[in-house]
């Protein structure tokens, strides 16, 4: 639908002899706006969902005032509050780095949404190196975290940033290995092809030996989005708030947005790689896609509100001593099964 719309309008544009670069630029702006709006709305829903789920698991009620009985507008009200707050630069902060950090974190977590397939040919841009693009771009925010930690001139923030860097680097490896399994199986780096491969032979999670890859992806994804048991970079009871301890108002909101956007992305990408993306009977493809993504989101939240947090050396050990060897084994196994 997306691509056909592009073609229809584009043809009309060319037929009337208008300069093509205006159309290209306008199309890009429109798509960026679409993604931004979608991400913002998703984050509103996700934050509300997180609060409701945590409340349910903890015998509480959760938000129940703003906008009706179940408090659906609570997040919007909170966002408004953050917008109206004073913008504080801590004394001694590296102002440029401090100012830049939230954007460096936020923009990549928006960019990765480009490749998500909401339906057949319903992605902003189905790059032929889609998976590689995701790996590359989603590794980027950690630079922003280090900038935030360093720029804040706060020891807790520096400790948080160091943890974030260490953790992100170690978990990227098993994450990529898990994705490699899928890529080997599908035989393509293009997200559209991976989905198509699942249409023919069933969802990848049902196919031996990709269950192992799924587990690896799921665990590392939790680490990538800094959720308990891997929430060490922010570890409230240890580092107060970690790298964003000095941020307030809108700048803090950007970190918050990025975190939840990333959470939604890893879940949606999990659904894409292993659960057949938008495929499913009766319901429209986009609905199926959202359903699967939210199922993963809820699972991550459920775990987050149940288990305690690991220690930094245990987190690193878990990755390098268990997940990386497991990932390598999974890749070899996948290769053998594929060649067979």
């Amino acid at each position: 639908m997306n691509a056909s719309l592009y073609n229809t309008i584009g043809q009309w544009w060319y037929v009337h002899g208008l300069p093509p670069w205006i159309f290209e630029a306008a199309w890009m702006v429109a798509m960026a706006a679409l993604v931004t709006v979608f991400v913002l709305l998703s984050v509103l829903v996700l934050v509300w969902l997180e609060r409701k789920i945590s409340a349910d698991l903890q015998s509480r009620v959760g938000p129940n005032r703003v906008g009706g009985r179940f408090g659906p507008l609570q997040t919007a009200a909170d966002a408004l509050k953050l917008l109206l707050k004073e913008d504080i630069f801590p004394a001694g902060a590296d102002r440029v780095v401090f100012w830049l950090a939230p954007f460096v974190v936020f923009v990549p977590s928006l960019m990765v949404f480009m490749v998500l397939p909401f339906g057949e040919r319903l992605a902003v841009n189905d790059l032929n190196l889609g998976v590689l693009f995701v790996v590359a771009v989603s590794a980027f925010p950690v630079i922003g975290l280090i900038m935030a930690g360093w720029g804040s001139n706060n020891k807790y923030a520096v400790l948080g940033a160091m943890r974030a860097a260490a953790q992100s680097l170690s978990y990227e490896v098993p994450l990529v290995l898990a994705m490699v399994c899928v890529v080997v199986f599908a035989g393509s780096l293009r997200v559209g092809d991976i989905v198509a491969a699942q249409r023919e032979g069933g969802w990848f999670i049902l196919r031996f030996p990709l269950q192992l890859a799924f587990l690896l992806y799921f665990i590392t994804a939790m680490a990538e989005v800094n959720r308990v048991p891997f929430d060490l970079p922010e570890a409230e009871s240890e580092l107060v708030a970690g790298y964003h301890v000095e941020y307030s108002g809108m700048r803090f909101a950007f970190f918050f947005l990025a975190e939840f956007a990333h959470l939604f992305f890893v879940s949606a990408f999990c659904a894409t790689l292993f659960l057949g993306a938008w495929q499913g009977p009766w319901l429209p493809p986009a609905v199926w896609f959202l359903l699967k993504s939210y199922a993963i989101v809820i699972l991550i939240m459920w775990i987050r509100w149940t288990v305690p947090r690991l220690r930094i050396d245990q987190v690193m050990g878990f990755s390098w001593k268990l997940l990386v060897p497991l990932g390598l084994a999974a890749v070899v196994l996948t290769g053998i099964v594929k060649v067979w």
């Binding site: 349910d56 698991l57 903890q58 015998s59 509480r60 009620v61 459920w302 509100w305 149940t306």
Partner: peptide
């Protein structure tokens, strides 16, 4: 996870 689930099914105390 099962413990948190059973608690989610209990009536709220707040």
């Amino acid at each position: 996870l099962m413990v948190t689930l059973t608690n989610a099914l209990r009536p709220r105390v707040t």
